[in-house]
């Protein structure tokens, strides 16, 4: 049973009394918390709730263990949303775990990813000390940008206890489209064209298996209908589809049945080659964020151990059931760990 402290003091006590410690949320990304038995896991599931939310500020503050589902629902009630489409909402992911994993969804295309919406963090360091970074306002340039540094840090520099985010008003309507492409190269050309177009798409994804580009526009309904007609004029093969596709993508349902799942940063310039290489290795690809990252997945150990999965991505599911690297380290790991965690209680590379 993983201990789940009821407050920050208890959490700090667990950190201080452990030799090695790793915080977990709902464990929807199990590979990130697959460790050997020397590591004490500690759950944030009892550190929940929205602490501050004033819709007029376009910001909210929530405790780290708050499920995204709750946040998305409360924002929706007030006509607001997190534009970067945090993944695994319905699967139960927490806001803290999503920050630590540094994950965004298709919507990161238009206004940026999770790193671009996080404004402030509160965290405990390796000695259980309590710190804040950033500020709970939409604009701030005071001090080092710790909120960004924590994004993607996978629990290695501190335990997040509270996060503050910027939110946007939710556009009144959505229109979704499917455009089939014969080859990855054709998809790259299409994505590059529509990404630069006047129409302001808010998401552009590509599924390598089916060769389909999915795109989405948001705004006033009348305007979207006019824009959709214009899109079909330019791309006669563009087909209107239901918006449910985006929930499937956000929940990573394309990888249902894949025992191994990894996120990898990508560029459009390298996409066609990368997708082709994956196809030859029977690794499936879902490209998201207008070509800025790819979800690679496969069904078995062969895929998980393929040279393509060399550890430069963030592996969130791993059938190998071994402690995973999550990502390769940098020379600064040790020096920055001296700053945050001199006792080396958090997991290293």
């Amino acid at each position: 049973m993983i201990p789940a402290p009821a407050n920050i003091e208890e959490l700090a006590e667990i950190i201080r009394s452990s030799e090695k410690v790793l915080a977990v949320g709902a464990r929807t990304k199990p590979a990130l918390s697959t460790t050997d038995s020397s590591v004490q896991l500690v759950s944030t599931r009892n550190l929940t709730g929205i602490v501050e939310y004033d819709p007029a500020e376009f910001t909210f503050t929530a405790k780290a263990g708050t499920p995204l589902r709750e946040i998305v629902r409360i924002l929706e009630e007030r006509g607001q949303y997190l534009p970067f489409d945090p993944p695994l909402v319905e699967s139960g992911a927490t806001i803290g775990g999503t920050v630590a994993a540094g994950l965004s969804g298709p919507g990161r295309f238009r206004y940026g990813g999770i790193r671009d919406f996080i404004l402030a963090v509160e965290f405990l360091d390796g000695n259980g000390g309590r710190f804040r970074g950033g500020a709970k306002v939409v604009k701030n340039a005071a001090g080092f940008d710790l909120p960004k540094f924590f994004t993607g840090s996978c629990g290695r520099v501190g335990v997040l206890t509270e996060v503050t985010f910027k939110v946007f008003p939710r556009p009144p309507a959505t229109r979704s489209f499917r455009i089939p492409c014969a080859t990855p190269a054709e998809a790259v050309e299409l994505i590059a064209t529509v990404a630069r177009s006047r129409r302001e798409f808010d998401a552009i994804d590509y599924q390598s298996e089916s060769g389909e580009v999915f795109s989405r526009m948001r705004g006033p309904a009348d305007a979207l209908d006019a824009l959709a007609a214009d899109l079909r004029h330019e791309f006669p093969r563009a087909e209107s589809i239901g918006d449910a596709i985006w929930d499937d993508i956000t929940e990573l349902r394309f990888a249902t049945g894949s025992e191994w799942l990894e996120k990898r940063p990508l560029t459009l310039g390298t996409m066609a080659g990368f997708v082709g290489e994956c196809a030859r290795a029977e690794i499936k690809c879902h490209v998201s964020g207008g070509g800025s990252f790819v979800w690679m997945h496969g069904g078995n150990l062969t895929h998980a151990r393929h040279p393509l999965t060399s550890g430069t991505g963030c592996i969130i599911r791993n059938c190998a059931r071994q402690p995973t690297t999550a990502y390769s380290g940098s020379v600064f790991d040790s020096r920055l760990r001296d700053a945050f965690d001199p006792a080396r209680r958090f997991r290293g590379v």
């Binding site: 940063p265 990508l266 990252f293 999550a326």
Partner: peptide, 9 residues
């Protein structure tokens, strides 16, 4: 890439 992996240096 617009995306990255690991702490955002």
């Amino acid at each position: 890439s617009r995306e990255s992996v690991g702490p955002d240096l």
